[in-house]
Amino acid sequence: MSGAVLIKTQSVGAVRGERVLFKALSLEVRSGETVLLRGANGSGKTTFLRQLAGLSEVASGAMTRVAAHHWLGHTNGLKAHETPRTHLKHWARVWGSNVEIDGVLERMQLKRPADVPCQMLSAGQKRRTALGRLLLVERPLWLLDEPFNALDTAGRDLLAGMIETHCAGGGAVIAALHGDAPLAASREVAL
């Protein structure tokens, strides 16, 4: 492994109520890596990912974030009234990105429903809209929670391709996944 360290955890733990989800989880992710978090329901995959993203508090241990990250949770972050175009425009504005929205829509195969409110889109189209956020600004680390959910075969190939390109370009991906993964992981972490 040669790339620079993007994020590092040292014996991180999490509790829910009185239940210990996991403890002493140490992970170091370098650029170019694709790390999959595997584990049964309730093992704390999502919690760990949220800790990595800074959304959930770390009960014990230490976390060093070096690089900026993109977040894709199991919810898409879309508003019912937004269209894919307005949604991407909105976050491009918030993040100060000048990327051309049409290009992103094209890449995510959202040209046709680009101006349809999200409440009328299919689950896969919404997921692709949310994935389009990853292309708005260049951030080295992608944190993805069940990213392949709701995607059809074409969508899965699309995302797998995106991840491959991202990692080849010096980025890294940490994804929580259950079931089979349509992408080549450089490492799997069992929770």
């Binding site: 800074g54 959304l55 977040w71 949770g73 199991h74 898409n76 972050g77 879309l78 019912a80 956020r133």
Partner: peptide, 17 residues
């Protein structure tokens, strides 16, 4: 509550603002 349920809140918290 809407922001929490649709996930927009996660994005806002990480927006750095």
């Amino acid at each position: 509550q809407a922001d929490l349920q649709d996930g927009a809140l996660d994005l806002w918290i990480q927006s750095g603002d």
